[in-house]
Computed example of a mutant assay.
Amino acid sequence: MKSVTVIGSGIIGLTSAIALQEQGFQVRIVAKERFDKTLSNKVGAVWFPYAIEPLKKSSLWAAQSFDRYKKEAGIAPGISFVPFLNAYVDESKEDWVDQLPPGTVRKARPDELPNGMEKGFIADVPLAEPPLYLPYLFEKFLSLGGSYEQKTLASMVEVAGLDSWVINCTGLGARALCQDEDLHPMRGQILRAEKLTVPSFADPTKKGALSYIINRSQDSVIGGTDYDDDWNESIDPKDTDLILSRLKTFGIRKNPEILEVIVGLRPKRSAVRFEFDPDFPNVFHNYGHGGAGFTVAWGCALELSEILSQKTR
């Protein structure tokens, strides 16, 4: 059986591993941290192509992921479809809208828009709840014959020596591992709160003032921040106050009960690195997905598995 090692156990690593298994590969995951310690376990994870390039390619990946989640809804724990309102302005590039099935997306009526939001699209989109979905993926990976090893890798030489084929899904960790200075953190702070009654929405139209509410089965995720080149992983009370103050601008008068404050660093890059390494040709890179990891993960994984399958025929 063809053998491949995937580095990283976040959403990109797990979906890549399973897609490869479905193509007949024997897959091992090697990761510094288990899935429940990764950035992927911290996020709200609604389907939303945010802070990712290139736009056209990522829109195709997002559409493929949409289809995969549609197949998993009602089967995979944590996967459901929810109405989601996304704000836009005239200069916004909304390529993702054209990739969805006809009738999936419509423009919001004025009475559906929160205070301060001028325009928006409404669509029923996938919601992945990481505490439920990631364990399901990990167990599925193991049930398909996969193995897991916890290990820290220090160099590309070490990476390339892991297996005949290696898939690098290390997210922000690839900056040091690959000496990739194009990859940098975009700091996000979010609030996990009691479940709200207002509709889920996102307003990404103002740089540095990302605002959203994602209603999940048992709670709501309120965001957020999008600070480029900010490595601070500590909770900042000022950001908590800022997030809550923005809620008021959208007409939400009463502060919700906060259950947890979470900080994570998104792996942002000028474009997703999705290619074979020029110096280590048995290594394929799949990292730099910005704030859209769950949104494009399956699309990337399926394309990657097809590329490697063709390589090994």
Rank of each mutant, 00 (worst) to 15 (best):
T5I: 04
S9Q: 12
S9G: 06
I11R: 03
T15N: 09
A19R: 07
Q21N: 11
E22R: 15
Q26I: 00
A31I: 03
L39S: 14
S40C: 08
N41M: 12
V46Y: 05
V46S: 13
P49T: 09
S59D: 01
W61M: 15
S65W: 06
F66C: 11
R68H: 12
K70A: 12
K71C: 03
A76F: 08
Y88W: 13
K93V: 14
T104P: 02
M117F: 08
F121R: 09
D124C: 06
L127P: 06
A128H: 01
L132N: 09
Y133R: 13
P135D: 09
E139H: 13
K140G: 07
G146I: 01
T152V: 14
V157W: 02
V159N: 10
A160N: 05
G171T: 05
L172F: 02
G173P: 02
L177A: 09
E181I: 10
H184Q: 06
Q189E: 11
Q189N: 08
E194A: 12
E194K: 05
L196E: 11
T197Q: 09
A202K: 06
D203V: 03
D203K: 08
K206S: 13
L210H: 06
Q218F: 01
D219P: 02
D219V: 03
V221I: 15
D228K: 10
W231H: 09
E233P: 01
E233N: 08
E233F: 00
S234C: 11
D241K: 14
R246P: 09
K254R: 15
P256M: 02
I258M: 04
L259D: 07
V261N: 11
L265R: 07
P267E: 08
R269M: 03
R273Y: 00
F274M: 10
F276S: 10
F280P: 02
G290Q: 07
A297P: 05
R313F: 00
